[in-house]
Design a protein around this nucleic acid. Structure first.
Lengths: 130, 130
DNA sequence: AGAAAAATGAGAATTATTCTCAAAAAATTT
DNA sequence: AAATTTTTTGAGAATAATTCTCATTTTTCT
């Protein structure tokens, strides 16, 4: 673990919640002036792949990073961009409310493997096994 | 309604489902060679604001456009990018399934007005009224 | 038809993020 | 500890989707 990685991890864990890469970059820069933006991005992605931090991707917003690992969702303010945590269990309820009162809007992005691609992968694996 | 707008609307309604702006652009170009990309984007956004078509925004994917107006969600294949419709009523259920079996991943993007901004707006409206 | 308003198209601008690659740092081997 | 290999860094270029600008064209209104 390099010094840069340590600084970045600590910043995500201790400084502002729901930070953007750029916010982390500026914070990191103030204690390590030579650090590069690419390094910040590289490590943020790496740390989130390792499960040490969580990357929050939202439609229309820049990615943010969070220390909280357990499953929860986020709501972004249309005006000021502030982000707050919302509870997974309430989603269905909140969605229903939202659809009625238009108190909020949401976009659900689901990523899967479609039937065709699943079949393709299974075929490939069978070939390797043969 | 300009000719361009008519062509664009018709293409969304009749050609490929879940088209990207670029796909619409190329299709439009083949029957109206002079059309510009900016015009396609402009009209797609306008049409979706008018509620005549629907813009599908997804984390990590380029925007797509859909003729289907009623509320439903979409699932994108991680490998080939193909998109299929999924039913709104099953969201909570599907999310739960997803969390258990990791058959798919999802990102929920909620957009709202935070308390502070709501208060700000109400204050402004009160001032105008006074 | 003529004037005013709106829409178009070409290309520049924007923005967040990733990529490239030479130099620096870290890890490993002797 | 020196030498060698591997990994990581940092600067800036590249990318890619979308929006913006603005002169020109088209449409609308009278």
């Amino acid at each position: 673990m390099t010094k840069q990685q340590q600084v970045i991890l600590r910043l995500v864990q201790t400084s502002c919640a729901h930070c953007s890469a750029d916010e982390i970059y500026r914070a990191a820069k103030s204690e390590m002036p030579g650090i590069g933006l690419a390094t910040v991005y590289r490590n943020l992605n790496q740390l989130s792949e390792e499960g040490k931090i969580r990357k929050i991707e939202t439609v229309g917003e820049t990615d943010r990073f969070d220390k909280t690992l357990n499953q929860h969702e986020h709501a972004v303010c249309r005006m000021c961009g502030s982000m707050r945590d919302i509870n997974v269990e309430n989603i269905a309820e909140e969605i229903k409310k939202g659809l009625e009162g238009m108190e909020f809007t949401y976009e659900l992005s689901v990523h899967e493997l479609c039937k065709e691609c699943r079949a393709k992968i299974e075929k490939q694996q069978a070939e390797i096994g043969a």
